[in-house]
Design a protein around this nucleic acid. Sequence first.
DNA 1: CTGTATCCCAAACGATACTG
DNA 2: CAGTATCGTTTGGGATACAG
Lengths: 121, 121
Amino acid sequence: MKAKTKEDVRPDFQACPVEYTLDIIGGKWKGVLLYHLIEGTKRFNEFRKLCPNITHRMLTLQLRELERDGIIHRKVYQQVPPKVEYSLTDLGMTLVPIIRMMKEWGDRHKGHREAADEKAE
Amino acid sequence: MKAKTKEDVRPDFQACPVEYTLDIIGGKWKGVLLYHLIEGTKRFNEFRKLCPNITHRMLTLQLRELERDGIIHRKVYQQVPPKVEYSLTDLGMTLVPIIRMMKEWGDRHKGHREAADEKAE
DNA sequence: CTGTATCCCAAACGATACTG
DNA sequence: CAGTATCGTTTGGGATACAG
């Protein structure tokens, strides 16, 4: 008997709208990317400087998903060398309040886990 | 050269507080579990009924992580059969506004992707 | 500069069986 | 009822090389 694949399971977003939202912004880097986009348009390599830990590959993938979900817009300048600018769409803008709240919550509470980490080392 | 394991990389929560918050509520089921906890205390099997897609194992793991991060409290009644109640801690309560916003956003915008899914089938 | 493609290891997860 | 342990598969994601 084959195990269920991802496609077989229809996540019940009806029952859990929170799950739907998290599915869009909960990706490993999406929250951070969106946060930086609040300040304005960003280029590919700008993201890499802002998030040194993200790999080339992951940045591409995460941006693609956000684009696919209609959260960000990708503007390509047809020139050499290429230039691509990412920005929030109108739909993306509606996420800004949530991102901001998460930013503030993180600022206010990130101490907790650091304290726990200290003890662990 | 050994590939970096998860432990080797210290995520820079300093630079990205959003990342820290998402690390806590962004788990596959955490948002949903927290959402249901807003209404009040829940038992293990209540969660299973509320989220039929979550497996026994995953429910345990996600609850453990939330407990470890100080977001939820686990109250064990020493009796047979066992009874365990989960509830939000004070810290967990501070997340409620964020969860609520994600719930509302999901309700309002979940139509988008469904439309895309229709076309895909 | 901004990607895409491939390979491959590590982590996540489901299924299942067992326990107090 | 509410878990834990183990196993095997699937997925995530890093490193690297190549391309327009």
